[in-house]
Amino acid sequence: MAIFSEHEREHVMETLGELERNVKLIFFTQDFECESCRQSHELLKELADLSDKLSLKVYDFKEDKEIVEKYRIDKIPALAVEGEKDYGIRYFGTPAGYEFAALLENILDVSRGTVELSEETTEELQEIDSLIHIQVFVTPTCPYCPRAVRTAHKLAQANDWIQADMVSATEFPHLANKYDVFSVPKVIINEGIEFEGALPERHFVQHILMAASSRT
């Protein structure tokens, strides 16, 4: 059964009409798909069909060990959005509900190869010289979550040291439990730094800098 209605399909096609360069959706699932893997897979298949500049490549979480390792995938369903290079943009869980709009914008950014960030942020990001791993926990019914996910993904695109994951709290309840996620969006940076809410870009970056400095 089609996931997009005719109206949604038209809207998404119109948005994807703005794509500049090719974008690869690299999806990780397994032969016997979990329920949310199947849903994600369907969604991405339909999405990739809506633009010639969008392609979908599917890997098996168990079989394709090398690729799984290369993309640092430790759970499925997982998605990497790749443009000219792998920017470290990941989605763990289905990018559905409010997150779908964030995924579309993310695809446009990757296609352009640039992101809109303030001058201060761009400057501050240059200070980073060690790996930063951002996890943004979300629920599909949270209207504030896409903003936190977008900020994290933009920062990942702007800086090679940063990997940013959207993590669905309902699809990975053990992780929600591990990180005490009782409110979304909740952001975990390098295991040590955490905050709740969709903070403005500048404040988000301050937390990243804190994480970067606590490592050195």
Binding site: T141, T170, P173, V181, S183, V184
Partner: peptide, 12 residues
Amino acid sequence: AYCATCDAPLFA
């Protein structure tokens, strides 16, 4: 919590 729409799914 003050946003039931956002956070209800976390209380399964």
